[in-house]
Design a protein around this nucleic acid. Structure first.
Length: 152
DNA sequence: GCCAACGTTGGC
DNA sequence: GCCAACGTTGGC
C-alpha cells in the first residue's frame, strides 16, 4: 500500500466539501500536470491513503485523510468546452488526462500546518517542503506518514 | 533542441 | 497583492 498527499484550495474544494458529497466520495478532476497525472494513472491503487492538504489559504496544512476509491480513468471534464479545465488537445479516443475517485476517511483533530511540517527534520525529504515544489499530488513514505500522524 | 516569454501555483 | 519557482509553449 502506498501513501500520498494531495493539495486543494479550501475555497474551491475543501475537506468538508468531500465530507458532504454523496457517499463522501468525489472525483479528483482537473489535474493538468503530467507528473501528477502519471501518479494517478500508474501508481495510485484502490485503498491507498491520502493526506488532504489545504493550500492557498490562511493556514496551509494537512487537515484530513482520504482513500483511493477508484483507480485512474479518463478525466472527461477535459472534453467539456464549458468546463474550467477544458483541454482541446485531449481527444476522447485517446484521453490525455486522468482522474481518480477519493473517499473521505477522517478529519484530523487539528490542522498540521505547513510551518510545522517544515520545522521537523524528520520530514526534510518530504516532497511537499522541497524548495519550489508545486506538484498537487505527491508520494509520502510510510515513515513520513506515521510521523506526521504522530504530530496530531 | 534551445531558450525566451508566458501562465500558474501557492506561500507570505 | 507580490513574487519566486517552474512547467509549457512556440519561434527559430
Amino acid at each position: 500500500m502506498n501513501y500520498w498527499l494531495m493539495k486543494s484550495e479550501p475555497d474551491v474544494f475543501g475537506i468538508n466539501d468531500l465530507y458532504n458529497r454523496p457517499n463522501q466520495t468525489e472525483h479528483w478532476d482537473g489535474v493538468r500536470n503530467y507528473q501528477a497525472r502519471n501518479m494517478m494513472r500508474d501508481e495510485m491503487k484502490l485503498g491507498d491513503l491520502i493526506f488532504f492538504y489545504h493550500s492557498n489559504c490562511d493556514e496551509p496544512g494537512i487537515v484530513g485523510i482520504m482513500e483511493v476509491a477508484k483507480e485512474g480513468y479518463p478525466d472527461y471534464f477535459a472534453f467539456d468546452p464549458e468546463d474550467k479545465h477544458f483541454d482541446p488537445k485531449s481527444d476522447p479516443s485517446a484521453p490525455r488526462w486522468v482522474m481518480i475517485d477519493v473517499k473521505y476517511v477522517k478529519s484530523l483533530s487539528r490542522t498540521i500546518t505547513l510551518k510545522e511540517l517544515k520545522s521537523r527534520e524528520e520530514l526534510a525529504n518530504l516532497a511537499l517542503i522541497k524548495r519550489g515544489n508545486r506538484l498537487s499530488i505527491m508520494p509520502v513514505s510510510k515513515e513520513q506518514w506515521d510521523f506526521i500522524l504522530s504530530l496530531e
